[in-house]
Design a protein around this nucleic acid. Sequence first.
DNA 1: GTCTATATCGGGATAGAC
DNA 2: GTCTATCCCGATATAGAC
Lengths: 224, 224
Amino acid sequence: MTSNKMARSEETRRRIYEVALAAFREKGFEETTMRAIAAGAGVATGAAYYYYESKEAIVMAFYAEAWASMQEGLGAAAEAGKKTPLEARLTRYVEVKLEAFAPNRGVLRALLRNGADPASPVSPFGRETAPMREADMVWLAKMVADQGLPKDLGPHVPAVLWLYQMGIVMFWLIDESAGQERTRELLRVSAKAVTLLLQLSKLPLTRPIRRTAVELIEIVRGVA
Amino acid sequence: MTSNKMARSEETRRRIYEVALAAFREKGFEETTMRAIAAGAGVATGAAYYYYESKEAIVMAFYAEAWASMQEGLGAAAEAGKKTPLEARLTRYVEVKLEAFAPNRGVLRALLRNGADPASPVSPFGRETAPMREADMVWLAKMVADQGLPKDLGPHVPAVLWLYQMGIVMFWLIDESAGQERTRELLRVSAKAVTLLLQLSKLPLTRPIRRTAVELIEIVRGVA
DNA sequence: GTCTATATCGGGATAGAC
DNA sequence: GTCTATCCCGATATAGAC
């Protein structure tokens, strides 16, 4: 009985979710009303709010689901054989993310509105998304584990790479070029630049500038 | 008479403006209602809309005022005598901004929420704020005009510096350290790093990496 | 030109009955 | 767990006072 009830409840939740995503895709986030979502799912407005405390929470649910679905791909990218260069692994990592998000790119744009405010629960920098962020960084740490990075910079690299990939994703969200062609270009060039900088950071010659970079990173991370 | 009327009209406009800013500071932008603003200013809701066609318009008025108040200081910082090192000029430029914003840091924090979305009128990256952004870049262009920067990088430097100073301002907004001490630290170290990188970019040795940097900049700027 | 008062609309969100 | 009824908000519109 309990499982029956739960199953029916989950089914209602799912129906609301599917209707909402379809509507977001078709008419956009702003233009889709909770009334229309509820009506489309065959429930009252209040019922929709029973399952999702806000319209943005539905988008957040999609974000979490997409994130879960991409873990396998992220792991494969991060832990690709040692013969795969870091640049290729990093590029693949970001591609996996974009591919998982792609069907609902327009939907995710709704999250941009609160994207910069760490106080917002739905911000990629916010409290609610912390577990996903940390899991991301575990993959990224594995990705660079074999790179022999300097002791001072090494511990910060996963966080820096996380910020890097988040930057690419945000760029992709606002990228209006056909098929987001510019984002591919940006990913190609920037992945090369990032891996080059990481290699350069290992040279004794670059130690002074590396120390400045580490200092900057530590100031910035101290706030977050 | 006309001046009398205008004076009274301006006084009402001003009262609405002040009440709105105080409310934004205290309760945030979203949570402040036009009804409350009007009531606080002792006018009917319609009167508030008579002076400001939307809640965002009040924010735009605030931007315009803050922007105007800092122009003199920005110009002085940017065009300081040639004996003033670039690092000092850049630092001073950002300090002028922070000092001008300081009394309304709370207001800007309330707006940070919408800051990341270029589609939002109140976003520093949006269409509505373009004139101010471009004026900023004119100052920054003057600041580096005498630096003999490479031909390929030079034209992009004002935009890069604009993004840099915007980053510092945003960091300052979310900086909870006492007196925003961390921001001062960040400004000190980052201004040194930025100017160092600009000097390095003039060395023939750095040409290959500079070309990659220019390529990245051009991809990113192409979207905006 | 500067407002007041009031009505209206659509949309997000909530309270409380069932 | 679900629905009905309701609230509040931003925004617009209107009629008219001063």
